[in-house]
Design a protein around this nucleic acid. Structure first.
Length: 708
DNA sequence: GATAGGGTTGTTTTT
DNA sequence: CAACCCTATC
């Protein structure tokens, strides 16, 4: 070991710490244990898939169309590797969400009859986090760093922006959110700030603005370092940097022998580069990349589906497999999807082949307005339920969160249970964030964003005082204790003009928090914090009862985690999985599984028997901000494609003529995604359904098409 | 000087 | 419906 250490000092720029080196992470090979169920691979896979899992070696690229059993192929590949005796800890399985990762591992488990322990499974971000917790010091990070979610990151950028003395320049200057996004593009796409601005925000192409922005980014970086905070991009950056360090890279190479990456079309430059770095450490370069360029819908996050095509160049001995058979949808739905996507010029040609027998042609409904649209969907849902479709087998897939409002209202009226997977997650709400801020302070007392939130809860303290207090305590060894020193306000904060009520409140408030920090069970800590926050919640929100219930729910949720750090990590890395809203209250009775309302982005990888796509109107879907930008339109069309290919049996495409926006009512034309289609791939539902359904309608339902 | 409240603006999608 | 900017008030 000592020779290793010498080498470190000689050759490498990173500073190494003994425990980093000796700990060898979780990379300690898991016990060889292939006492698994025997799996009949041949029986459960089609010949293409079977061939793939029998030849796992070297670089492989699998272009798998929608519904082609992509997830199945990956899970079987993992099972195959394990049954061949590969240790779980030698496999890295990168998925697009942590939920997907969990589900895949569960499927592997049910195949093998045993949980494979120690697989490196998760998103790029969560795997990065696992490395960084171990190698924090080596990477130059505080070991108790806190991961900010996107909202936090924007808030911090806002602080940086305010601090930068914007008055110096006269030009219109982008808001914090835009600044953050420019920085992210720059990092994730390997482009300079200037290039990003030329590419995405041409309006701000101005020397002074760019110079100022760079200055803001510096402040932002500095703040992060001082406060012990990191953002999502940092997780990738630091991971990437660790991989440049040969000792770490070798360690990883020694242990990780197989890399599987799902949804490769949605990787960005940095992620692609990280994969390359991990793979090239291994002499055999075993990597399986799975993806479908037609389903690339995350360009706004820097994703570039060209990564798939470049893959072949990057790994010249790469074998490419195309899986075009579709097991999910009826031929009519595939025909529509194929017809739509061929309008994308910048797309690799690929037609999905149906395997299922014929069914119903997709329905297209032109309808008066958003209200009629909601009524139509609700009624059709009820009717299908009568016909034996379960609610959970139906979904309403929307382009943007605000498209759900009217529909939710209507479903509520008709007593249809539903679950919304869109929009602001449960713990993004102000009161949840407030509570979490307290946890963050307990974990990391230098967390500026968390302190600011807490200070502003105290009446009489606003942004200015909060900033002052923070800058005073943040340089101290123990900020909480320092704040509680007897002469804190009389001496240390002498110059400030905090009203005496504020001072008093603040002291008692912090004292209460301090009392809590002694405990170590997150759930109990939350219960105590709720008591502390109660007054504030009661006086600030009219629906304080609901909000307190939310907080209690959070404490129940926290029971699953043994430390605050774990809990905080889960909260920031699993944004979408936790926060879905349900219309059902009280869950003791056995309930019907609800209908799903989801954004199309969150519906990725899922399927339902029946899918409704509302708001297919110009300026809504495709969104108005994308009109005139050919690339933007193509991305929207891929979003449409993803939505369509979620449907197994029935598809409803709905175009309202009048919609509600924040600006009032707006008339709109039918979406190009409808009119550009060959008219034979869909049927105007007016005719189709009326004739078929009317006889059935003796149960008092008004025909949905009376609305037309 | 600083906070609190009101009016105005502009809203995709997510790790 | 939240962030932002401006103004009345302490």
């Amino acid at each position: 070991m000592s020779s290793k250490k010498e080498k470190v000092e000689e050759e490498y720029t990173f500073e190494f710490y003994e425990d980093d080196l000796f700990e060898d992470l979780d990379l300690e090979p898991s016990k060889l244990d292939n006492d698994y169920n025997e799996v009949n691979f041949e029986e459960n896979l089609n010949p293409e898939q079977f061939e793939i899992i029998n030849n796992i070696q070297g670089p492989m690229l699998i272009i798998a169309g929608a519904g082609s059993g992509k997830t199945r192929t990956i899970t079987y590949a993992v099972a195959k590797l394990l049954s061949l005796g590969v240790r779980p800890s030698e496999i890295m399985l990168v998925t697009f969400t942590n939920k997907a990762s969990k589900e895949m591992i569960e499927r592997v488990e049910s195949l093998l009859g045993k949980k494979p322990k120690g697989i490196w499974a998760g998103t790029f971000h969560s795997i990065a986090n696992r490395f960084l917790r171990k190698y924090a010091k080596t990477a130059g990070l505080r070991s108790n760093y806190t991961i900010m979610d996107e909202t936090d990151a924007v808030s911090l950028m806002r602080l940086a922006r305010e601090k930068s003395n914007l008055k110096e320049i006269e030009e219109r200057f982008p808001k914090a959110k835009i600044c953050k996004s420019i920085l992210s593009y720059s990092i994730n796409c390997n482009k300079s700030i200037h290039d990003v601005i030329l590419w995405k925000y041409e309006d701000f192409n101005n020397e002074k603005v760019i110079a100022k922005m760079k200055q803001i980014f510096k402040i932002y970086e500095k703040k992060k370092a001082q406060d012990g905070l990191i953002d999502f991009d940092d997780l990738l950056i630091y991971w990437s940097a660790l991989l440049d360090e040969r000792i770490v890279a070798k360690l990883i190479a020694k242990r990780i022998r197989y890399i599987l990456v799902d949804e490769y079309q949605d990787t960005n430059w940095l992620q692609d580069d990280i994969v390359y770095k991990v793979v090239s450490q291994n002499p055999q370069r075993n990597i399986i990349a799975v993806g479908d360029d037609a389903q690339s819908i995350y360009a706004f996050r820097g994703a570039n589906f060209q990564n798939i095509m470049n893959f072949k160049k990057k790994y010249d001995d790469c074998r490419v497999y195309n899986i075009t058979y579709n097991y999910r949808s009826i031929p009519e739905i595939l025909t529509l999807a194929n017809d739509s996507i061929q309008h994308n010029k910048n797309q690799f040609k690929k037609d999905m082949q149906p395997t299922r027998p014929e069914g119903l042609t997709p329905f297209q409904v032109n309808i008066k307005d958003h209200k009629a649209q909601a009524r139509f969907i609700a009624k059709q849902v009820l009717r299908l339920r009568e016909d034996g479709f379960e609610l959970e087998q139906m979904a309403i897939l929307v382009r943007a969160t605000f498209h759900t409002m009217r529909i939710e209202l209507e479903l509520g009226k008709k007593n249809i249970p539903y679950e919304v997977r869109a929009g602001v997650a449960f713990f993004e709400k102000a009161h949840i964030k407030d509570l979490i801020a307290h946890l963050r302070i307990i974990e990391n007392p230098y967390d500026e964003l968390a302190w600011m939130r807490i200070f502003k809860i105290i009446p009489g303290i606003g942004t200015t005082s909060a900033t002052k207090i923070f800058s005073t305590i943040s340089t101290k060894e123990n900020p909480i204790d320092f704040l509680l020193t007897p002469n804190f306000f009389s001496n240390i904060m002498k110059g400030s003009r905090i009203p005496s009520i504020g001072k008093r409140h603040l002291k008692t408030y912090i004292q209460q928090i301090k009392g809590i920090t002694a405990k170590d069970n997150p759930s109990d800590i939350i219960l105590d914090l709720i008591k502390v926050l109660k007054d504030h919640i009661k006086t600030s929100y009219e629906n304080w009862q609901d909000r307190l219930d939310d907080l209690k729910q959070l404490s129940v949720y926290a029971q699953n985690y043994s430390t605050i750090q774990k809990l905080l990590e889960i909260l920031s890395l699993n944004q979408s999985d936790i926060g879905s809203r349900t219309s059902q209250l009280g869950s003791n009775v056995e309930q019907e599984k609800p209908l799903v309302i989801s954004t199309i982005h969150r519906a990725k990888g899922l399927e339902w028997r029946v899918v409704f796509i509302p708001m297919l109107a110009e300026d809504m879907f495709p969104s108005s901000r994308v009109v005139g930008d050919p690339e933007g339109i193509e991305e929207e069309r891929r979003v449409f494609y993803v939505a369509v290919t979620r449907a197994k049996d029935q598809l409803y495409l709905i175009s309202p003529a009048i919609v509600q926006t924040y600006r009032g009512l707006q008339t709109c034309r039918v979406s190009r995604f409808i009119w550009e289609l060959n008219p034979e791939v869909y049927k105007k539902s007016k005719v189709q359904l009326k004739s078929k359904k009317e006889k059935k309608n003796q149960n008092g339902f008004q025909s949905a098409f009376d609305l037309l």
